[in-house]
Write a protein that binds this DNA or RNA. Structure first.
Length: 307
DNA sequence: AGTTGTCAAGCTAGT
DNA sequence: ACTAGCTTGACAACT
């Protein structure tokens, strides 16, 4: 499916997560819970939506057609939030979603470390489900199809990986379809490597986002190309093109820290190793769109000579 | 204006 | 049983 033929050009898109460092607005603005008010909430969300729209325009102008939406609606899953924000911002969200659809932009979201579908603690599970519900609500309010994904890790180990994977799978089966159709899991760099994620896929059908940097740190010896092939094979037609997170180690930084700026030689080797495969690339590099712009020049030169 | 600690939420390894 | 460390980015309080 992801192996393209000689006739079919790659449709690969490239992008970056959450933040644009050039245009001078933030789409992930938040505030302290202690200073919560309806007014502050509404102002913050309005500004976040506006900034997201500006970023998406910038991205389209620069050929960056993959974007991860960050924390657009602070406290959305917290009981303090009493506003029906999908309704309140219905028009703005639908407009942004229309822009996304019109320009063929690929969208992902990545809830953070607190979303643990295999949690042992009922409260943590409840919070995780609320948080997943928020993410699905936002993508629904943007009126995006099932190719817009919510990406999480497999979760904690809790003293037994196979039991925790089984628990993940069981919880997954019980998810409402509006969440499950968007859920994808990403290999992490400490507990659940690619092989574990493939096992989760086998049990649930959930597609696997391959993260090359995490794979460099935690693997079972699978070469890059083989690993990426296995991950991309987990994506069905309705899921869209497979998503891949790309990053490299910050040279002088502590192990695991993302590079400040893209290492084009490392990126070139990555493209060499994955030649002929089609997937969307999320560039997880600190300077965001600046590296994405450099990377897409490299990508076009190597993969899309006609474009 | 710039710096530093804190933030809704958790896991893991080490003591 | 408890604490420090983990990634990340932005707020908020402080210098």
């Amino acid at each position: 499916m992801n192996d393209r033929t000689e006739d079919a050009p790659p449709t690969m898109k490239l992008g970056y997560p959450c933040i644009n460092t050039t245009i001078g607005c933030t789409a992930n603005s938040t505030f302290r819970l202690a200073s919560y008010s309806n007014q502050r909430f509404i102002e913050t969300v309005r500004n976040n939506i506006r900034c997201t729209a500006r970023i998406l325009r910038f991205n389209v102008e620069h050929g960056l057609l993959f974007f991860r939406i960050g924390d657009l609606v602070p406290f959305a899953s917290h009981p303090v939030c009493r506003i029906d924000w999908p309704l309140y911002f219905r028009r703005e969200l639908a407009e942004a979603g229309q822009f996304i659809a019109d320009h063929g932009i690929r969208i992902s979201m990545h809830p953070d470390q607190f979303v643990l579908l295999n949690a042992l603690d009922e409260g943590i599970l409840r919070n995780s489900l609320e948080e997943l519900d928020y993410h699905a609500k936002l993508l629904d309010a943007l009126r995006l199809d099932s190719t817009a994904k919510i990406q999480i890790h497999a979760g904690g180990v809790y003293g037994g990986k196979s039991g925790s994977i089984a628990r993940f799978a069981e919880r997954c089966r019980r998810l409402p379809p509006r969440i499950r159709r968007r859920l994808v899991i990403e290999n992490d760099d400490r507990s659940y490597g690619l092989a574990d994620c493939l096992e989760v896929h086998r049990l649930t059908g959930v597609p696997v986002v391959f993260d090359n940097f995490h794979h460099e740190r935690l693997n079972a010896g699978e070469p890059l190309r083989e690993a990426l092939l296995a991950a991309t094979a987990t994506w069905a037609a309705a899921d869209g093109l497979p998503m891949v997170d790309y990053s490299s180690q910050q040279p002088a930084g502590p192990r695991g820290r993302h590079a400040t700026s893209v290492d084009l030689r490392h990126f070139g080797r990555f493209l060499d190793a994955t030649e002929g495969l089609d997937f969307d690339i999320m560039l997880e590099i600190k300077d965001k769109e600046q590296s994405a712009l450099r990377a897409i020049r490299t990508l076009r030169r190597r993969r899309m000579p006609a474009a």
